[in-house]
């Protein structure tokens, strides 16, 4: 089960993973709880370490701690220079790993963060630390994620070939840092609609995506354009990544539902169709986890509920063993 958080956007109402995550620890017993994720460069890393440690204890060690760099408009909202995003992310992650694992109180003298006495309590339940997940939207960020003992998550992928290239880059980086990740370390996020028939699902998904891209995402796209052209959010040597980042949503917006299904960017159709689509994700990307976003745009609640029921009753039994 996953929770997301985004700041100053209308696409999601969860601004922080922590309250929702805390509620889920009390309403679930065995399922892993993935917080996807905290905007690490924009928050105090010691606080993030403490909150995640608390959630891990409250859940009995079921936490997957997600860390994301955030998207360009969030740097406007928090008034932090996008140029610092990658440096802050790398340093903050190292602080959190130490905060979770150091046997003694410690200080930190860094480029962006200085602390003289870090000692969090309680420590996380999982040892040496909770599972970590980080997002990768291009090869540069995939190589970065590979530096850390983390699962990788991809969402809003442009197509399966591009996603496979990103995953290959992440695997190479992880191997260079002494790890050999498997399917259980890969998560693909997909917007999902399951109905009794393909036609019905396509119709609901088309309406929801039109509102999602045409209304909800427009302010974010404007912010992305402004931030990326005026800063080094993707680094000086990686203008291509910025261009890809901007074009990705435009590409998704312009495709028909059938084209999106063919490209592997959404899960949509009857239970049998979605089972095939999930198998393809597993075959092409080696993904052991799929994060299905079933409440999308203006999609009616009854359609969302039906979609979830069909997944539970007719899709999950077929894909559980993959």
């Amino acid at each position: 089960m996953t929770l997301n958080s985004e700041s100053s956007v209308s696409t999601r109402t969860t601004k922080s993973c922590w309250p929702g995550g805390a509620a889920l620890t009390q309403r679930t017993k065995g399922i892993k709880l993935a917080m996807l994720g905290n905007l690490l460069p924009l928050l105090n890393p010691v606080r993030v370490a403490e909150e995640y440690a608390m959630l891990d204890v409250m859940s009995g060690g079921r936490l997957v701690a997600g860390f994301v760099r955030g998207i360009p408009h969030e740097y406007i909202a928090y008034n932090v220079s996008p140029d610092e995003s990658r440096g802050r992310m790398r340093e903050a992650l190292n602080i959190i790993l130490k905060a979770w694992t150091e046997p003694e109180p410690f200080g930190w003298e860094g480029e962006y963060y200085q602390y003289r006495a870090i000692s969090i309590w309680p420590r996380p339940r999982q040892s040496p630390h909770p599972h970590i997940m980080m997002s990768a939207s291009n090869k540069e960020s995939a190589a970065f994620v590979g530096e850390f003992p983390a699962m990788v998550g991809l969402t809003l992928i442009a197509d399966l070939d591009i996603a496979a290239g990103i995953i290959d880059t992440w695997k190479e980086s992880a191997k260079a840092h002494g790890r050999n990740p498997g399917p259980e370390d890969i998560l693909i996020g997909q917007q999902t609609c399951i109905c009794e028939t393909d036609e019905e699902a396509h119709e609901h998904m088309a309406k929801a995506l039109a509102y999602f891209h045409g209304v909800l995402m427009r302010p974010q796209q404007d912010a992305q354009r402004i931030v990326i052209q005026g800063t080094r959010f993707f680094g000086e040597a990686n203008a291509q990544a910025g261009e890809y980042f901007v074009k990705r949503l435009q590409t998704l917006k312009e495709r028909t539902i059938k084209e999106q299904i063919e490209a592997g960017t959404i899960l949509c159709g009857s239970p049998q169709s979605v089972i095939k689509q999930i198998r393809r994700l597993r075959d092409k990307l080696g993904a052991g986890h799929i994060n299905m976003n079933m409440k999308l745009g203006t999609m009616p609640d009854e359609v969302v509920w039906k979609s979830m029921e069909l997944f539970r009753d007719r899709v999950l039994p077929e894909v559980r063993s993959l």
Partner: peptide, 29 residues
């Protein structure tokens, strides 16, 4: 140093735990 491969963090842990009035600080990069 966070990148020190000659003197490991364990040395810092030992000193921090054994010297009563002590502090351990990591120097980034």
């Amino acid at each position: 140093g966070t990148l020190d491969e000659i003197i490991p963090p364990e040395t810092g842990h030992l000193l921090k735990s054994k010297i009563a009035l002590s502090y351990l600080t990591y120097i980034w990069d």
